[in-house]
Design a protein around this nucleic acid. Structure first.
Length: 466
RNA sequence: GGCGCCGUAGCCAAGUGGUAAGGCAGAGGUCUGCAAAACCUUUAUUCAGCGGUUCGAAUCCGCUCGGCGCCUCCA
């Protein structure tokens, strides 16, 4: 079956293909760089990465744009509190974000765009919206008039015909005509940074940057727009209102939203003390691959309960796969014969792929891999795993790792070199031959202290980095 | 108050009408100089609970209980 995704817009799983020339034009909402990104943020970014990788695995070319929001209330507050310019304040957090992404092996998008580098484009779009009658001014700020956009609510499937009874409506926003109206452009006030533009001085509201930059780099209609589920309303709804008013075209064909991450069953919050940045977690000694695996292993539309137990499980699962791969690469197999194992590997690959095709069902895809691993190990133990089954088995692991990317261990600085390890392994083999087990165990421990695990097999010792 | 999601073994989790995937953890065993790895056996007659529809339900419907989200900045 073909690749398909759940589309928030239609509330259905739909077959996906890009609108033209095999290129997927995709926009994802990136970070607001006012502090370090937390593990919940990285659930979304990991999802973008899996999506990218699977689209490419399926033969599509990517044109992926992600924004960095580097002007916004919290940033301004933070910068002013520290007496820094916006640039000074955001540069560090932007770099930290990029570093964290690299640690988690998140592929950079084709284009990373900053809001502050597109202020004039935003101002022009706001002017155009005004010319089309979608805006009004109030005390120097510009607002979007939702009453002019009847389709408002079509993404989040909200019905605005009644009053938002019980909802907390910001009573301070007295300068808006309608509670749903949102600010496009904020007038400068008391020392806050602002830009001189064709619509006057000020700074952009949050929603406009995404519409403007997406259209600028990807065209009027995107194939995919993705983000966290909490962005569905109002952010993405507002993006649609802006973009479609501007172009008259559908803004995005597929809207994909990631569910929330919980920590130990509860919403992450600073007051609960369960607020974790990636740095915190790695600082506790967990491997980045384990974090990546855990975030990837739960299908993106399910809430993910992040626990440190789960992180340990993830690390153990990765170890199992690494050991299997090492065994495939190092063990001596009998000559080609029974073709059933090779066929089984190809079948597992097909199941793996169709699971990911099905709205990125990573849990089911993983099951296909592990099921094969167990069967293959059993056959190897029995000496019935022919060498001809090795290439299709490695092909399965390659496909798996092209998406999950957890098999390659992260090399720590100052790690012992391969040549040195091999010398020690050889020395230990000699010691074992001489039945000097004390020396052999000493070498094994010495390697272990340096993060290298040595395992004896009937074909001799093999080693791997931990 | 409105809208929506979820509740499957100790933990994570797939499965949405045909008789319970997978991972981790635990127990016992095989192999091993010792380890490690791997394998085998074992852990849900049952899918929050109660009713209903059906030849047949974890899967559909109703009610109850419990958890979560959005409606406000938020991945």
């Amino acid at each position: 079956m073909a690749l398909r995704f759940f589309n928030t817009l239609t509330q259905r799983v739909e077959e996906f293909s890009p609108v033209r020339d095999n290129t997927v034009r995709m926009y994802t909402c990136g970070p607001t760089v006012y502090s370090y990104a937390h593990i919940g943020n990285f659930r979304a970014f990991t999802f973008y990465d899996l999506l990218r990788r699977w689209l490419r695995a399926r033969g599509f070319t990517l044109e992926h744009v992600m924004n960095i929001t580097d002007v916004e209330d919290k940033i301004i507050r933070g910068a002013m509190a520290e007496g820094k310019t916006l640039d000074q304040y955001t540069a560090g957090y932007t770099q930290a974000f990029l570093d964290d992404c690299a640690v988690l092996r998140l592929e950079p998008p084709e284009r990373l765009v900053r809001a502050t580098e597109h202020i004039q484009e935003m101002a022009r779009s706001i002017r155009e919206l005004g010319e089309k009658g979608y805006t009004y001014r109030s005390e120097g700020s510009v607002y979007y008039r939702i009453a002019r956009f009847p389709e408002y609510g079509k993404l989040s499937h909200k019905n605005f015909s009644g009053i938002l009874a019980g909802a907390r409506v910001d009573v301070d926003e007295y300068d808006k005509d309608d509670a749903r109206d949102f600010v496009l452009w904020k007038a400068p006030k008391n020392g806050e940074p602002f830009w001189e533009t064709e619509i006057g001085p000020g700074r952009p509201g949050w929603h406009i940057e995404c519409s403007v930059m997406a259209i600028q780099y990807l065209g009027q209609t995107l194939d995919i727009h993705a983000g966290g589920i909490d962005l569905t309303f109002p952010h993405h709804e507002n993006e649609i209102a802006q973009a479609e008013a501007l172009t008259g075209q559908p803004f995005a064909r597929f809207w994909l939203h990631t569910e929330f991450l919980l920590v130990e069953g509860q919403k992450m919050s600073k007051s609960l003390g369960n607020f974790h940045t990636l740095r915190d977690i790695l600082g506790r000694g967990y491997q980045p691959e384990a974090v990546r695996y855990l975030l990837a292993s739960v299908p993106y539309r399910k809430q993910l309960n992040f626990t440190f137990d789960g992180l340990k499980s993830a690390a153990a699962a990765i170890e199992r796969l690494r050991s299997f791969k090492l065994r495939l690469e190092t063990a001596r197999m009998p000559a080609p014969g029974d073709p059933s194992m090779a066929a089984r590997a190809r079948q597992a690959l097909a199941v793996f792929e169709s699971a990911l095709d099905d709205d990125l069902n990573t849990a089911e895809a993983l099951a296909a891999v592990f099921e094969f691993v167990r069967e293959a190990n059993t056959r190897m133990d029995a000496g019935e795993f022919p060498s001809s089954a090795v290439p299709p088995s490695l092909a399965l692991l390659d496909r798996f790792d092209s998406v999950f990317d957890v098999l390659r261990p992260a090399l720590s600085q100052g790690a012992i070199g391969d040549a040195e390890i091999q010398a020690l392994v050889a020395e230990r083999a000699q010691a074992k031959k001489a039945r000097d087990f004390a020396r052999a165990d000493q070498i094994r421990q010495q390697l272990l202290d340096q993060g290298v695990v040595l395992e004896d097999t009937k074909d001799g010792a093999r080693w791997k980095r931990k």
